[in-house]
Amino acid sequence: MTATVEAPGQDRTRGRARIARVAQRQGALVILAVVVVAATFTFDSFGTAGNLENIALQASFLAVVALGMTFVIMSGGIDLSVGSVFALGGVLAAWGAGHGTWAAVLLPVVVCGAIGLVQGLVIARGGLPPFIVTLAGLLFARGLLLLISDEGATTYKVPPSSAFRELAQGSFLGIGYPVWIVAVAFSVGGLVLHRSSYGSTVLAIGGQEDAADLMGLPVLRTKVVTYTVSGVLAGFGGLLMASYTSSGVTVLGVGTELEVIAAVVLGGTLLTGGAGTVLGSLVGVLLLQVIRNVINQIGSLNSNWQAVISGTILLVVVTLQRWLATVQRE
């Protein structure tokens, strides 16, 4: 590559900026590694294959949702509906399982995708703020869920004979299917974000929407697609959960949207959009899950500590990100 136009004296600051940039994008990975290593030495039961596999499996449901959220935040938006949509997807899947495996898979994906599509259309065409539109989506999805489950009193069970259970309970090479699904989904997501024109457009919209528009990029279409995919993935996360628990639990997903947003931001995606990585979000989800697991290991600790610690870490990471961003700029 050609030399830069800057004076040689700025090499050092450039080097610092590069380190700061890596730290900003991969900070969560560093924390994750430290926590995992520390926990492995502290708790005998943490580092076992069974426990690690359990963490990965538990994290996979949120990870699917976080993937969609990553694209939404990257585009400068926010999707508050995912928690409710996640729960709705689970209930629909459990209900559908009574009518066949295909119904269990297709029903939640189609319904949740449709919710995402409508949100995307209103946000893109109507120019309304995503916060409000997806807040409406949150209420709508939660209401729909309560309607079809007699205000949450009916918990649909996946029939014991249904092949649908296999989706989340089965495993390959000793690792549960959900983990494999997450691995594939994030690989595809990474390619889409960094190597497709859709991905570039998402980043451009998040970075400078006016510019993206003036460059003639398909801004509206990209937004619609992004929110639709977020809806589909939230629904899919829910259906995986239903398959795993063999039932459509109606009380799930309350506050999940916030947990997912936290994971994405922990992973280094700028909440203002325009920059970040898909892998970072996965790390963010894993970090939250590891913290939860560690707190469970300390049997005496109230499980609510998990939220307290996660919140603290989130605050520290965001503050660090801000600080690192100023270091980069200097």
């Binding site: 570039s200 970075g207 400078q208 003639g216």
Partner: peptide, 18 residues
């Protein structure tokens, strides 16, 4: 300047026509 500051120079030049 109506470009995207968080993307690379090359990305900005070829956005939409990569």
């Amino acid at each position: 300047v109506n470009l995207v500051p968080l993307l690379s120079v090359a990305r900005n030049i070829f956005l939409g026509r990569e």
